[in-house]
C-alpha cells in the first residue's frame, strides 16, 4: 500500500499507463460500436431501437461501478489515511455523474418508443435518479470549502453514508413501487441475449471501464499538480512575506 502512497509514484505509473488506456478505450469502443450497429441483428421485438442498448446498458453499469469505486476510495482514505484515496474519490465523482446522467437520458430515449413514456416511476429509474442526486451532493460538498483538503475529507464521509444508503433506497423504492402498482411495463428481456448482441455489449462495457480509468488518471494527476501549486504558493508567501501598502496592494516586504 505504501509503495503507491507517494504521489510521484502515481504520476510515474499513470504517465506510463495513459497511452495504453487511451488506445484500449478507442479500440474497444470502436469495435463494440461497429459490431453493435452494423453486425448485430435488430431485436425481434424492439427492432432497431435496441441499438440504444449498446450505450444505455454500459453507462448504467458504469454509474454503479463509479459509485462503488468512489465509496471504496473514500473508505481507504478514512480507514488507512492513504493520501491519494480522497483525491481518487474526488476524481471519480464527475465521471460517475456523467454516466448516470447518460444512463437516465438514453434510458428515457429508449423508453419512449418502447414503453410509450419518457419517464416511469419504477424502482430502477427512481433509484438511479436518487443516485444522480447523491453524486451531485458529493461534488457540491467537496467544492464548498475554501480548503480543498477539508472538502475531500468531508466528501469521503458523505460518500460512505450514501453508499450505505444506496441499497436502502433501492429496497425502499422497490417496495414503494410494488405497493402503488403503476401501469404495466414491457419487460426488456425477451429471449436470453444472443452472443451477437452480448459481445458488442461486453466490448462497450470494458471500453467504458478503460475510459473511466483514462479520465480518472487525468483528474487525479490534475489534483496532484494542484496540490503542488498550492504548496508552491504557500512557500512563496512564507519566503517573501507580504504586507499591504497604503493603497491596499499586497507588496513583498523583502529587499
Amino acid at each position: 500500500m505504501h509503495r503507491f502512497a507517494n504521489p510521484n509514484r502515481f504520476m510515474q505509473i499513470s504517465g506510463a499507463l495513459l497511452p495504453w488506456t487511451a488506445a484500449s478505450t478507442v479500440l474497444l469502443v470502436a469495435a463494440g460500436l461497429y459490431l453493435g450497429l452494423f453486425r448485430a441483428p435488430p431485436d425481434y421485438q424492439q427492432g432497431e431501437s435496441v441499438r440504444i442498448m449498446y450505450v444505455h446498458v454500459p453507462t448504467s453499469w458504469m454509474a454503479m461501478f463509479c459509485y462503488t469505486f468512489l465509496a471504496g476510495s473514500a473508505a481507504v482514505g478514512l480507514i488507512w489515511k492513504h493520501p491519494l484515496a480522497d483525491l481518487s474519490a474526488k476524481a471519480a465523482a464527475p465521471i460517475g455523474a456523467c454516466f448516470t446522467l447518460l444512463a437516465l437520458a438514453t434510458g428515457s430515449l429508449w423508453g419512449k418508443p418502447m414503453w410509450g413514456t419518457w419517464w416511469e416511476w419504477d424502482a430502477r429509474l427512481t433509484s438511479v435518479l436518487v443516485l444522480f442526486f447523491l453524486y451531485l451532493g458529493y461534488i457540491a460538498l467537496v467544492n464548498a470549502f475554501d480548503d480543498p483538503t477539508r472538502g475531500v475529507r468531508a466528501g469521503s464521509i458523505l460518500a460512505l453514508v450514501g453508499f450505505v444508503n444506496v441499497p436502502i433506497i433501492k429496497f425502499s423504492v422497490d417496495w414503494w413501487n410494488t405497493l402503488h402498482q403503476p401501469a404495466s411495463v414491457f419487460r426488456m428481456d425477451g429471449p436470453t441475449i444472443h452472443t451477437s448482441m452480448l459481445i458488442p455489449l461486453l466490448l462497450m462495457g470494458v471500453g467504458f471501464t478503460t475510459y473511466f480509468f483514462w479520465v480518472w488518471m487525468l483528474r487525479v494527476r490534475t489534483e496532484i499538480v494542484a496540490g503542488k501549486i498550492r504548496a508552491h504558493r504557500r512557500r512563496q508567501v512564507q519566503r517573501a512575506p507580504v504586507d499591504f501598502a497604503g493603497d491596499g496592494r499586497a507588496v513583498s516586504t523583502e529587499g
Binding site: P42, G47, E48, S49, R51, I52, V55, H56, T59, L102, A105, T106, L109, W110, K112, P113
Partner: peptide
C-alpha cells in the same frame, strides 16, 4: 433511418 427509431437512437448515441 434505424427502422423508424432514428429520432431516439441517434440522439442517444450522439449525447453519449
Amino acid at each position: 433511418a434505424m427502422g423508424g427509431y432514428a429520432f431516439y437512437v441517434w440522439p442517444s448515441l450522439g449525447l453519449t
